[in-house]
Simulated scan of single mutants.
Amino acid sequence: MVKFRLGTRGSPLALVQAELVRAALAAAHGWHSDAIALVPIRTTGDRVQDRPLAEIGGKALWTKELDRALLANEVDGCVHSMKDVETIRPAPIVIAAMLPRADVRDRLIGADALDALPEGATVGTSSPRRRAQLLSLRPDLRIVPLRGNVDTRLARLAAGEVDATLLAAAGLDRLGRDAGFAIPTATMLPAPSQGAVGVEVRADDTVAQAAVAAIGDAATFACVMAERGLLAHLGADCHSPVAALASLAGETLSLRACLFAEDGSETVASEAEAALDEPVGAALAADLLARAPDAIRRLFNP
């Protein structure tokens, strides 16, 4: 008998992440894995692979079909890579829990270090953040759009379309791929929420909320929500090159962030600390925007 229906994108990585959630739910509640059904849902972001997300609708392309299925009661919860979830969510949907966060770093595929890339090397990425960060560190690089799932991007790299690309370490690890050079966060901060897998449910479904809450990692939830709070107060969207990472020590939450001009020519960075129950993202956003040059400030809409 199916006790819980989990909506998920159908990509290999999304399915692996959904399996992680299924295993966690089964362990938490003593359910057989067959009692948790995975319901693959094809999203616009999966169908359209030839253009950057920012050109065709942003992060909603990963969520709107899953949202529809959830609100239509076709599934009880939806599994998401949290970095792909819009900052402002529909009121009838809540983030019920997040699994323990995985490696937050980016991995460079195609060279052993950023400094090892040849002069003028072509790097494929459709992420405004990665583009800006790369150009900030290596203005000589040529950045070209590269979308698709992990296998698609690795295949295009192998075919020689680009000299290198960047992929999230967490995704590679979850797929069992030991590839690439992990770039330290001191060199490249990750995308807000990178490495975190979350589960959303209907706000009025207290049964589903309780079931999912049992698998939640409180530290991950606090850090990711702080990073999402920063995005909200910045008025960031999919065009905004922003990197951020929160950490938790006892009841103190620390948040580091960096904003970039689109071409990486200008940056502004800052960090803040606050008690766990304080809105650290709001103060940090205000500080960053107050010090940001026009080339950066115009990319945000607080």
Rank of each mutant, 00 (worst) to 15 (best):
L172Y: 01
D173E: 15
R174Q: 15
L175K: 04
R177A: 05
R177V: 01
D178Q: 13
D178T: 10
A179I: 11
A179N: 01
A179D: 10
G180S: 06
G180R: 02
F181R: 11
A182R: 00
A182Q: 01
A182Y: 03
A182I: 11
I183S: 03
I183T: 01
I183M: 01
I183C: 03
I183V: 13
T185N: 13
A186C: 01
A186R: 15
M188H: 03
M188P: 00
M188K: 09
L189G: 02
L189E: 07
L189V: 10
P190Y: 02
P190G: 07
P190W: 10
A191D: 13
A191P: 02
A191L: 12
P192I: 03
Q194C: 04
Q194N: 09
G195D: 05
V197R: 06
G198P: 05
G198I: 10
V199I: 15
V199E: 10
V199K: 08
E200V: 09
E200H: 14
E200K: 02
R202M: 08
R202K: 12
R202E: 14
A203G: 08
A203M: 00
A203W: 10
A203Q: 14
D204G: 04
D204M: 09
D204A: 14
D205M: 09
D205Q: 12
D205V: 10
T206H: 13
T206R: 10
T206I: 03
T206K: 05
V207Y: 00
A210N: 11
A211K: 13
A211S: 06
V212M: 07
V212T: 07
A213F: 06
A213N: 06
A213L: 08
A214H: 01
I215Q: 00
G216K: 00
D217E: 06
D217H: 10
D217P: 04
A218N: 02
A218I: 13
A219Y: 05
A219H: 14
T220M: 06
T220S: 15
F221L: 14
F221K: 04
A222P: 00
A222L: 13
V224M: 03
V224W: 07
V224F: 01
M225W: 00
E227F: 03
E227N: 04
E227T: 10
E227L: 07
R228E: 12
L230W: 00
L230H: 05
L231S: 05
A232Q: 15
A232D: 11
A232C: 08
L234M: 10
L234P: 11
L234I: 09
D237M: 12
D237E: 14
C238H: 14
C238E: 15
H239I: 00
H239W: 15
H239V: 00
H239L: 13
V242F: 00
A243Y: 11
A243F: 07
A244C: 09
L245F: 13
L245Q: 14
S247W: 12
S247P: 03
L248Y: 06
L248A: 04
L248M: 11
L248N: 01
A249P: 02
G250I: 14
G250C: 06
E251C: 00
E251S: 12
E251Y: 04
T252W: 14
L253E: 03
S254F: 09
L255I: 04
L255F: 04
R256C: 09
A257C: 05
C258N: 09
C258Q: 15
L259G: 03
L259E: 04
F260Y: 15
A261H: 02
A261N: 05
